[in-house]
Design a protein around this nucleic acid. Structure first.
Lengths: 213, 213, 213, 213
DNA sequence: CATGAATGAGGTTTCATTCAT
DNA sequence: GATGAATGAAACCTCATTCAT
């Protein structure tokens, strides 16, 4: 785990500990909510001590803030890799949908933390101006895509890019965030590959039909 | 069930007290999550005592279970009033969307509790077979509607009613459940009437386009 | 269960309820100690309500007092049936030992309650003058027996009857009262018939050798 | 085990605090039984806080377990000092009786805790295999003593050492454990020196007569 | 950089008991 | 005579946090 010991090796150890704690915190907050998260569990998961948590993050609040920033930063980094320009517009839109939904699927801790933050009325997010830049780039890309699709005669005018982004998010996020109650109520395991596939397909279809001419 | 009320009737105190506690619990759990909910706050809101909470509901777990059942029962009762047969199919579909979204809008505690239950992986719901009957009636109605719409030449075939239901729910639930983070990120107040209206309109439009021929 | 309904029948019901509660209380206090005894459990065992417990016995203290008096009264009643005069003195002594030990064996609740009372430094017993008459009769009988045995040349002089009584009690009571820790420590089940028999036999032997010439 | 004490050594506070709590717990459980024991009282007696009790012993159960182990360990340590070989056999037996009875007399908390453990059917003891070694050494010593006494022509054959040990324990334990009810019933203070002496003397006599030829 | 010991405040739950009819 | 509803007080226990090295 540790890099070979030459020069300022110990410095990296400190950051590694901090990183392990942060990762454990993301997981813990996502799984148990803010009040349900336990410092002890975080320390243990991080193979560190509760004392270290306070050493690096001052208090629970600070730890949560850091955890929230982490998951948003990860999303932002992922979104920076999105490119929608070199394809047929409708195909580009569909691949964007898949990107968003795959991201949710592979980052359940994002959903957990965002739900927790919403329970708290986005208390932290509202105060964190750095996070304001979050969605804008992607909404911008969608706007360009819509325009390009229109010019190509493949998409209709009048679609609001922000609204489209929220709709795409809705169809993926809700399905995963509420998978447990929905599974119970519908009597099927929503994460089973066949159901997941079916949902992705019809959701993509819905988005396509919404913007297509 | 209740004895006839005569004189200075205090007879119904028991049920009234229980009901006040339950209502307060729904609100508290919805606002603060399971772990964050405080017995003291519930007691105070219910103008009762913490002791009474345990008298009627045994423990926090029991109280949560009761609260969850309450909100699901309310939804079920509301859904029982839905009728989709006496209208033009597409109009009926739209009015169903409005019903669902209005319900979410007017019952934020439903969203709060359901999110909390999902955080716990639907632990309670899975064990409560009474709640299994929940969505089915509405999904059935949607199936009938789709068939009718098809026969009338207004709707296309091949739409899965359960999937349609989940999509309708997604578009309303996510918008409200995540209103705080979205508002922060998009830089607008999503609950402002104009934005809400715009969202409802485009979401209904999306649903309509999805099923229309 | 109820006597045939003629005349003042309900009166008996009341006493029957009281009796059931008392019996349940004896059992509960014996098993769980004073502080560990639960009104709820007593009520349930007695097929009555907690409210009735207070109705008949005022409070926990009163209930314990009544329970303690009950078990001592039962012992007293049993001891009243003891007769040591129509036998060979040493045989009479042995049969007295068996009486005492059988009583303990068949009334574990006596041991439980007496231990509990001792934990409380005999708080109740000391204030209950009615119970003073308890052992005296039996000690008196033992005194007579010793005298008779002496006259018959079968027993030695100089044995204090009270002390003899305490010794007989010790050998039976301790074995049963401490059966669980002793069983654990000695690695055998002290209540198994063979061990019980062996203990009774050697204890009786010890008593016999103590008084024999 | 402990780090060297230098300067204003507070280093050993941990163990000292733990020890004070444990001592207070032994006393409290012995006096009030398991359910009657109060955390607050233990904390105060230990000049510590209730919080510390949980810090060191996790919960009431853990504290009781530790307390029980403590008193058994003390008895074991005391029993390790017993030597029965350098004396006239009958005198050695008598001095062993005195050792046992003195121990009970000087350790009332042993009796209190053991009674409490028996009320719980030796729940803890049964699971604690470490305590299995408890009596064996002493029973072994008694066996040797009996053999030696036999060879010397002072003791009769056929006495079971374990049974002898239990009898010796009985005569001392019961007298002290039940001193309060016995005092009330017999109308004398059993702890008064003259009565205690008389009991010790006649009990020792009983044991002697039991094994002597 | 790291850690073991300590703790105030408050959370959930239980218990014996009383109120009001 | 009997009962359902209600409750104050205190019990056990947990949590986030700080002290002292």
């Amino acid at each position: 785990m540790k890099p070979p010991a030459f020069g300022k090796t110990r410095v990296r150890d400190a950051e590694a500990t901090r990183a392990r704690i942060l990762k454990a915190a993301v997981r813990e907050f996502a799984r148990h909510g803010y009040a349900g998260a336990r410092g002890e569990r975080i320390a243990k998961t991080a193979r560190s001590s509760e004392r270290m948590v306070y050493y690096y993050f001052a208090n629970k609040e600070g730890l949560f803030r850091a955890a929230l920033e982490t998951v948003y930063a990860s999303l932002r980094d992922a979104e920076r890799t999105v490119h929608l320009d070199d394809e047929d517009p409708l195909a580009a839109l569909e691949s964007f949908c898949r990107f968003v939904w795959d991201y949710y699927l592979q980052h359940p801790e994002f959903i957990g933390l965002v739900n927790t933050e919403n329970l708290q009325q986005a208390r932290h997010l509202r105060r964190s101006p750095r996070l304001g830049e979050l969605v804008s780039p992607v909404v911008g890309l969608l706007a360009e895509l819509l325009e390009r699709g229109q010019r190509a005669g493949a998409m209709r005018p009048g679609v609001d890019p922000a609204q489209l982004y929220v709709s795409i998010a809705s169809l993926g996020y809700f399905y995963l965030s509420n998978q447990h109650t929905l599974s119970a109520v519908l009597g099927r395991d929503l994460l089973a590959p066949e159901h997941l596939q079916a949902h992705w397909r019809s959701a993509a279809d819905m988005i396509r039909r919404y913007v297509a001419v």
